[in-house]
Design a protein around this nucleic acid. Structure first.
Lengths: 230, 230
DNA sequence: ACCTGAACACCGTTCAAGT
DNA sequence: ACCTGAACACCGTTCAAGT
């Protein structure tokens, strides 16, 4: 039986690149990176997987574009201040981590290949500005950004996998404590004696310490010895 | 038509946990971590995927066990020497990286959860021994190991994904140079002026510099301020 | 106890057919 | 031009049936 008018049908939003990315992000938020299947994203839009290929080249392309949208949530408003650049840098790292944590597993995307989106570029621009405000040598800046980005992504990705397996940090620590409680102190004297310290601290504390080491190292390292460009 | 004797059939090695792990490692070496499917490993053993479940709980368990086998290739023979602990530490990090590189993508396994195998434990034991030989504070040792392991794994995993996509580092650099060559210097002044330095150096050089920063940071950082155990 | 084929519930991607 | 259902070539895992 035909409806009175097409208007009475629930309005189905027309597909678009933005609609696909939004659907992808909502699936990502709810089910993590491995839950972002073409079929799941399509279902969110009441269509089939094949329909997505008008707007994204493939799944990898979809994830790349989603990643830059995620980075768009980063707040880069505070102007670099030479008197507290280090504080600002540490806060920036934590803000990036928090953004990644909102989209479980998204941090695997920039591990897979260097992002070239606008928001990623804006983030890098801002980080360089902070480091130059701190008077850091340009060569050291270039390589620090690499190492710091890797550290942030790896940290976020690690916790995301834990969550995806439905365990929180506490469960993981307990399992590990069990596994290691059987160790023979004669064979692993250092390990066994360091166990209590190895188990200390939550993810944020460890991240903060790693970050502090990286920045202390940045300050105290000699610049890398670079070959002259050919 | 029956063969003269069962002996004339090609001897099919009986299945065993070791045989499954060996098959897994050979697939991993040839096709990378995503190529290690239950079906591919089974095919290597002339059987079906279902047969593997006698020896491994599931794919994740298979990969975990394979990871510890990989770490078994690590050479930990050199005794820690207080006069050159730092050199030894840097060499250890490079040896771990090289082992990971032989099995493309295996570094994702320890990112997914903290390894508890014997060889992983031996590696940690050795790293602690080196750091204690260097007189590093125990609290700093515990947290440095976390950060350094993460950095090594992330580095190895990153290059593995590049390879899995069939591109080498050079291709990637070229693509990135292209993508960034269009940037507006007015909008991204720092980025554009730092471009030449951002493109400098190969993976090993960047890894070495990141490692140096971490160790310099380790030396110059204050120990983390830990809560007292409850 | 160990092994297996077939089945189940999934994937990403392509493509001919529709509008 | 955009959308779609069906198909293709895959997955991990389970399970009844064999030995």
């Amino acid at each position: 039986m035909p409806r009175l008018s097409p208007r009475s049908q629930p309005a189905k939003a027309p597909l678009s690149r933005d609609a696909v990315l939004d659907a992808g992000l909502s699936v990502l938020k709810a089910r993590g990176i491995d839950g972002v299947t073409m079929r799941a994203v399509a279902a969110e839009l009441d269509t089939g997987a094949a329909s997505l290929y008008v707007y994204v080249g493939n799944r990898r392309d979809l994830l790349d574009q989603m990643f830059d949208r995620v980075l768009g949530e980063l707040d880069l408003d505070e102007a670099p201040d030479p008197s507290r650049w280090r504080d600002q840098l540490e806060h920036l790292a934590f803000r990036i981590l928090r953004v990644y944590e909102r989209y479980p597993g998204i941090a695997r995307v920039p591990l897979a290949h260097i992002p070239t989106g606008v928001n990623a570029t804006r983030g890098t621009e801002y980080m360089i500005a902070l480091l130059r405000a701190g008077g850091v040598d340009d060569r050291k800046i270039a390589w620090f950004i690499d190492a710091a980005s890797l550290f942030i992504c790896a940290t976020a990705y690690e916790t995301a996998i834990y969550e995806e397996e439905g365990r929180d940090e506490g469960d993981a620590i307990d399992e590990i404590r069990d596994a290691f409680s059987q160790l023979d102190p004669a064979e692993f004297p250092h390990f066994v004696s360091l166990m209590p310290l190895l188990m200390q601290g939550d993810g944020d504390e460890r991240f903060a310490f790693g970050l502090r080491m990286l920045i202390d190292g940045l300050i105290h390292s000699e610049p890398p010895h670079l070959r002259v460009a050919p």
